[in-house]
């Protein structure tokens, strides 16, 4: 819960160029290289995917922070989950996590992945990323803006001790 609270507060900060330097230090120290993100859509409405795509455009350019998406879970350091994690996707999320080498940071992005969002009372919904895996960071919002996504990811890397 502490990290959820911290991350929520981080999101309210304005964009800061110093974040980039901080991330470079943190990621080099902890991972020794750029970080790769494996995204799994676990039953979103596809709004979160649109904003994830937007983090890669010329304006937001996630790559400049040393963060990039990878198709292979074997190369990934961060598991980013969007969507409600419905019953049909539980096994796929577990298998993706199992295919990733430790250490892994788990990020739940968007209100649905945080706690089920507007769908939380649905019988088909397990109640967000936390119901499947321990989550290191939540990025709330429906959907969160690209700036909020980037701030959340950078904030996580600066603050979180690697398990």
């Amino acid at each position: 819960m502490l990290w959820k609270t911290l991350a929520r507060n981080l999101l309210t900060r304005p964009a800061n160029p110093a974040l980039r330097a901080k991330l470079a230090r943190a990621s080099t120290k902890k991972f020794g290289r750029a970080l790769r993100i494996r995204h799994v859509a676990a039953g979103s409405c596809n709004g979160c995917e649109l904003e994830l795509h937007a983090t890669q455009n010329l304006i937001h350019d996630l790559t400049q922070y040393g963060l990039r998406f990878t198709p292979s879970p074997r190369h990934a350091d961060i598991l980013l989950i969007t969507g409600v994690a419905g019953r049909n996707m539980l096994e796929a999320v577990r298998q993706t996590r199992a295919a990733m080498p430790d250490p892994v940071l788990v990020v739940a992005m968007g209100d649905c992945a945080v706690d089920g969002g507007v769908f939380k009372t649905s019988p088909m919904v397990s109640g967000g990323g936390d119901a499947i895996l321990p989550v290191d960071l939540v990025i709330p919002g429906c959907p969160p803006t690209p700036a909020q996504i980037i701030e959340g990811l950078v904030g996580l890397l600066g603050q979180h001790p690697i398990r």
Binding site: A41, G43, S44, C45, G83, V84, G86, R87, N88, M89, A92, F119, S122, P123, M124, V125
Partner: peptide, 8 residues
Amino acid sequence: YAHKSTLG
């Protein structure tokens, strides 16, 4: 896989 029972 994205079934959320929205109609319900």
